[in-house]
Amino acid sequence: MKVRILVRLKPGVLDPQGRAVHHSLEGLGFDGVSDVRIGRMIELDVDEATTDEAIDQMCRQLLANMVIEDYSVEKLNTAEPA
């Protein structure tokens, strides 16, 4: 099973990287971008038996830093056709 985890800075936490990229986009002449936030995508390939609780713990214990980041989990449908 593939699991896609998105780790993002919490709202209100300043994102200097996003701000620099925003500035570059403006420099390229792209108007109408009001904000840029940069996060991280992590894809896991896990056993089918892996529980939601286990994935949650992976996020909380290592993949995200809960002081500054939030995460969301998406399970990708990779079941093979019968």
């Binding site: 936490v13 200097p16 830093n65 002081v67 500054i68």
Partner: peptide, 16 residues
């Protein structure tokens, strides 16, 4: 901080 022995987190410098 990552080991939770101290609170908070250290982020990218504001200046980048």
């Amino acid at each position: 901080t990552e080991a939770k022995l101290l609170p908070g987190a250290l982020m990218r410098n504001a200046s980048q």
